[in-house]
């Protein structure tokens, strides 16, 4: 551990305050270029503990950087010199207050500069723990998969995440999510070839398939499980909701948008932005 815990605590606090107060914060890596991935996860744990101590509940996890399209987008647009290794997606925590109910609208003023991603969500019916968890273990432990929207809202100015730790400290931009209505066993859908298309205000903007997520989204959940084990000696509790990462590149939201994503064999999910 290269960095004083006090500094990590301070950065976690700044990120959390940005989220609560709905304002942009300055990047960390310019001031602390030495921060690495492990520092990032330690700070993220401190951030989670702050939230838990206030009575908030963790309901699941999210993965970032799991799709080729998203990695290309991050590399092109979002980061300042951050390297996202293809085999190590980043992990964030989902809290109870982040969930939008099925008929809820997305109120733009409650966010800083939100973007939306269409993803496949897993809900576990038993715990996954340890270094020896792989895709088939995930399949066996999954109650159902369902379409999901994730709302990402980096606290960093202009969504610019730099260095190896900034995004991780900032809970990987996690801010909201919504789940679809159709639930199926992962054995009853095509986890690779399931087509997914997204339309904004009636015009298609995203064309992809579930296999965009690491070739098979269950691999992403296994990777999440191993990351939580390595970083925190923790597992994925039964009941966890896991967002496996954007299938298509993320999309900026503006007032009046109506977004719909169709998942082959798994129904549709929609949201109105007000």
């Amino acid at each position: 551990m290269s960095v004083d815990k006090k500094i990590l605590e301070e950065l976690a606090h700044i990120s959390l305050e940005g989220e609560r107060g709905n304002y942009e914060i300055e990047p960390f890596y310019t001031k602390y270029p030495e921060l690495d991935r492990n520092d990032g996860y330690q700070a993220q744990k401190l951030r989670l503990d702050m939230q838990l101590s206030e009575g908030q509940r963790r309901v699941g996890f999210k993965l970032g950087g799991t799709s080729l399209a998203k990695r290309k987008q991050v590399a092109l647009e979002l980061t300042s010199g951050a390297y996202i290794p293809p085999d190590a997606p980043t992990v964030g925590q989902l809290m109870d207050y982040m969930r939008l109910e099925e008929d809820a609208e997305l109120v733009l003023s409650e966010y800083i500069h939100p973007k939306l991603e269409a993803e496949l969500a897993f809900v576990l019916d038993r715990e996954l723990f340890g270094p020896n968890v792989h895709a088939p273990d995930v399949m066996m432990a999954t109650a159902y998969v369902t379409p999901a929207f994730e709302i990402i809202d980096s606290r960093f100015r202009d969504f610019k995440m730099g260095g190896k730790a900034d995004a991780i400290i900032d809970n990987v931009s996690s801010r909201g999510f919504k789940l679809g209505r159709v639930r199926k066993s992962p054995f009853d859908v095509d986890m690779t070839g399931m087509g997914v298309r997204t339309s904004f205000n009636g015009a298609f903007t995203g064309y992809s398939a579930a296999g965009a997520v690491m070739g098979h989204p269950a691999r992403a959940v296994a990777s999440l499980c191993r990351t939580m084990y390595e970083q925190w000696n923790a597992g994925l509790p039964a009941g966890s909701i896991i967002l496996t990462g954007a299938i298509c590149p993320s999309h900026v939201l503006t007032r009046g948008d109506r977004v719909i994503s169709d998942f082959e064999g798994l129904g549709s999910i929609w949201v109105n932005v007000v």
Binding site: S67, L68, A69, T192, G195, Y207, S208, A210, G211, E264
Partner: peptide, 17 residues
């Protein structure tokens, strides 16, 4: 809604529908 997973030399090159 047919998903396309397109591979070049066994590496995923693009995904579409």
């Amino acid at each position: 809604l047919v998903g396309y997973v397109y591979e070049h030399n066994n590496r995923q090159a693009e995904v579409s529908c």
